[in-house]
C-alpha cells in the first residue's frame, strides 16, 4: 500500500495498530480454511492458477468469489454475474457508511485503498474502539493493521489452496468445496426468522425456475427472497427494529 509511506507513523498510529492487530488476531485464524478452500474452489471450478490469483487480489472477498464461481463455471451472462455479486456485496454499503467518518482526513487514493480493504471481521472489531478514540491517527492504525494482516493471510492461504488443488485429479469433485463454503456462510445468516424466510424463498425459487434460460431464475429468486424477508419481518413484529 503506497499511501502508507506518505503517512507519518506517529506513536498514536502505532498504538492503534497494535490494539487493532491484537483484537483481530484470534479471529484471523478463521481466515485460514476459508482462504485455502476458496483457492481450491477457484481451481476446481476451472480457473487457471493465474486467473484464480487475479480474482483473489482483485475481488478480495470470499463471499463474492465463492458465490460467483458457479455462475462463471456455467458460462452465465455477465449481467447476471454482476447482479449476483452486487446482491452479495450490498452489505458493504452499511459497513462503509458506518466507518466512513473515521477517514475524512485522508486523500482520495488512500480512501479507495481503505475501502478496498474493508472486510466484515475487521469492521466488527474496529467500530466501537474507533468510535471511542478521538485521535484520527490512532483510528487509522487500528483499522489498517488488522486489514493489511487479513489481506496478507487471505492471499497466502488462497495461493496455498491454488497450488494444492493443481495437484489433485478432477475426479475428486473439489468444486463441491465452494458449495460447502457457501452453506457454512449461509447457516449463521439464517439465524433470525425473516433471514431464514429470505434464504428458503431464494433457494426454493431458484430450484423451481432452474430451467429458465440464461439462469434468469436466479435473479427472480434473489428478488423474491428479499421481498419475502420483508414480508416475514412485518408479520413477525410490526415495529421491526434493527
Amino acid at each position: 500500500m503506497p499511501f502508507l509511506n506518505r503517512l507519518p507513523l506517529t506513536a498514536e498510529f502505532r498504538a492503534g495498530a497494535r490494539a487493532g492487530f491484537r483484537a483481530f488476531l484470534p479471529q484471523s485464524i478463521g481466515l485460514i480454511p476459508w482462504g485455502m478452500v476458496t483457492g481450491v474452489a477457484m481451481v476446481g471450478s476451472g480457473l487457471t492458477p493465474i486467473e484464480a490469483m487475479g480474482m483473489n487480489v482483485l475481488v478480495f472477498s470470499g463471499t463474492a468469489q465463492l458465490g460467483t464461481l458457479p455462475l462463471i463455471a456455467a458460462g452465465a451472462p455477465l449481467w447476471l454475474i454482476i447482479a449476483t455479486a452486487l446482491a452479495l456485496n450490498l452489505r458493504f454499503l452499511i459497513f462503509s457508511a458506518g466507518i466512513a467518518g473515521n477517514f475524512q482526513q485522508l486523500r482520495m487514493p488512500a480512501r479507495w485503498g481503505v475501502g478496498y480493504l474493508l472486510v466484515d471481521g475487521v469492521f466488527a472489531i474496529c467500530l466501537e474502539p474507533m468510535r471511542r478514540n478521538p485521535d484520527p491517527q490512532w483510528r487509522l492504525g487500528h483499522y489498517l493493521a488488522p486489514s493489511l494482516w487479513a489481506w496478507a493471510v487471505w492471499q497466502l492461504c488462497a495461493l496455498t489452496g491454488i497450488l494444492f488443488a493443481g495437484a489433485i485429479p478432477g475426479s475428486w469433485s473439489l468444486e463441491f468445496m465452494a458449495t460447502i463454503a457457501l452453506l457454512a456462510l449461509l447457516l449463521p445468516m439464517a439465524g433470525t426468522r425473516p433471514m431464514l424466510v429470505a434464504a428458503l424463498t431464494g433457494g426454493a425459487v431458484a430450484v423451481a425456475l432452474h430451467g429458465l434460460p440464461l439462469r434468469l431464475g436466479l435473479l427472480v429468486a434473489m428478488v423474491a427472497g428479499i421481498l419475502s424477508g420483508f414480508a416475514a419481518e412485518r408479520q413477525h413484529s410490526p415495529v421491526a427494529g434493527s
Binding site: 463471499t63 449476483t84 446482491a87 452489505r91 449461509l186 434464504a199 428458503l200 429468486a221
Partner: peptide, 15 residues
C-alpha cells in the same frame, strides 16, 4: 440490504 446476501447465497447454492 441485510436480506440480499442470504437470498443470493441460497439462490446460488440450492440448485
Amino acid at each position: 440490504l441485510r436480506y440480499a446476501p442470504a437470498a443470493a447465497l441460497a439462490a446460488v447454492v440450492a440448485p
